[in-house]
Structures are given as structure tokens and as C-alpha cells.
Amino acid sequence: MATEEAGNGFNIHPMDQFEITNLFGGGPIHWYSFTNATLWMGLAIVAVILLLVVGTRKRATVPSRSQSIAELMYGFVYTMIEDVAGKEGLKFFPYIFTLFIFVLISNFLGLLPMSFTTTSHIAVTACLAMAVFLTVTALGFYKNGAKFLGLFWVSSAPLALRPILAVIELISYFVRPVSHSIRLAGNVMAGHAVIKVFAGFAGALGIWAALPIVSITAVYGLEVLVAGIQAYVFTILTCVYLNDALHPSH
């Protein structure tokens, strides 16, 4: 039922690349098993260490290439938080930077051929989004108390409309983690699946395989863009939600 198994040469399994497997000796996957997801998360940590710790170890005033990248990302996230969530949001800079760097590095690592993309899994992105959602909600109530509920009571709207708007706002508030997580996972998954489908065409078309290969190249370029933009979007939405928690005046 999963894929078309007819005998016309097409044998495409676009979703197989997202399979989670036990790297050491098969068997069922327990919570502690060392899977390919574990491996690529570990590689993400290694990449972050290489870029942000080893790359900056010289503390040069005139930065090297890797130090420039590290400083660029630092300044990028820093100004983003400052612009969107204000000065108070800067307290959460390490937290947001962790999310940003994890999503960004995972997206880019996932673009390596034969790699596994951890951010293509709903479980991972949902965890990230729920972490943001719970933190922001708790922070909103901690900082503003009951006034945080004013977020749902649109005081600029006519009085008759306010209850309806409150229901809509409430729903949209609880949809936030869903869209936050599915946007990231869906984008990454879609790009990889599309590349896989084109690769399947290339396998079946013989001499005409050049066409899908060109398409793969184009889609790959788009995917590189999407990988960066989705990390950016994930981070900036985190900042927007944080801003709502810090300044709930609607």
C-alpha cells in the first residue's frame, strides 16, 4: 500500500530515508537505543563544537573564517531577539540560540547525501515546539499573572466581537506549537521526499535521467535555502511568542 509496486520500473520509496534504525544489532528500538537519529544528533553536537568552540578558540580580533561565521550567527540571533522581543528577551538568548543552532545544523547536516535528518521527524520538532510553548506560557503567567489572559481579550475590537475573537485567539494560541513544529518538519520532509522522487525517476528513465538530475540539482539549491530559512523562521517565531509572553498588551 505504501508505494507503487507495479512492474513498470518505478520503484520509489520517498519515505524510507526517514526510517529510524538501530545502528548496533537491530532489534526493537528502546528509548536508550543508539539509532541513526542519535548518531546525527551527536554529529550536530560535534559540528556545533567545531564551529563555535574550536572555531573561536583563538579569540582573534581579526576573525578567521569559522570565527566570522560564529560571530555572524551570534549577532544575527542577538539582534533578532532584541528587535522582536525587546531587551528583556535577551535573558533567553542562550536558550533561543541553542534551538536555532540545533535546527540550523540539523537541517544542513540532513542535506548531506545518505544522511538522516533529525528535524524531519515530528517527534523532534514537536518536542522543540512544545518546549517553546510551555516555556513561553509559563513565563507569561509568571511575569504578568492573570494579565497574561489579556492576550486573548482584544481590547481594540468592538465589545460584541470580543468573545468570538477570544475563542479564535485561544484556538490560534493552542495551534501555535502544532504549526510551529509541523512547519519545520513538513518543509524538511517535503524537500527530501521531492528529491527522492526525482531520484527514483532518474533511476527509471535511462538516458533521459539527465532531466530529473538537473531537477534534483535545482531542488537541492532550493533545499539549502529552505534549511536556512526554516531555522530562521523557527527562531523568529520563538521570539514572537516570547514577545507575547513578555508584553501581552494586545
Binding site: 529510524i20 528500538i29 528502546h30 528509548w31 536508550y32 537505543s33 539509532t35 537519529a37 542519535t38 544528533m41 551527536g42 550536530a44 553536537i45 541553542t98 534551538l99 540545533f102 533529525t118 521527524h121 517527534a123 523532534v124 518536542c127 522543540l128 518546549a131
Partner: peptide
């Protein structure tokens, strides 16, 4: 499995 390792990674 994923959630556990994700938390560890983060």
C-alpha cells in the same frame, strides 16, 4: 528514543 536523545542533545 528520539525524544530522549533530543533532550540529551539539547
Amino acid at each position: 528514543n528520539q525524544i530522549f536523545w533530543l533532550v540529551v542533545t539539547l
